[in-house]
């Protein structure tokens, strides 16, 4: 699980071009949207593509994504639960 969280941080920084951030800057429970890391709606859609492409995990609607993408921990838990 720990490795998954670190891997996710690296992938998210690269995918979303978060130029000013290093993996250690993102806390596992830190909110990714709004005040925390500051992601927006396009980033959320992009994360949906990432989960499907890299982990084979599908999110069918953006509303569901809202809860999954709350923090690194919630994403990791979602992947663990749904990965085949």
């Amino acid at each position: 699980m720990r490795n998954l969280q670190e891997k996710l941080k690296g992938e998210i920084i690269e995918l979303l071009n978060l130029e000013d951030l290093q993996p250690e800057d993102i806390g596992n429970d830190e909110p990714l949207f709004g005040s925390g890391v500051g992601l927006d709606s396009i980033d959320a859609l992009e994360l949906i593509v990432l989960l499907e492409r890299e982990y084979g995990v599908k999110i069918e609607n953006p509303e569901e994504g809202r809860e999954v993408f709350n923090s690194i921990n919630t994403i990791a838990a979602f992947i663990e639960k749904n990965r085949k």
Binding site: L16, I42, D43, L45, E46, V49, E52, R53
Partner: peptide
Amino acid sequence: SFPSPAVFV
């Protein structure tokens, strides 16, 4: 096929 919303926009 994995179109990217961040590219499409």
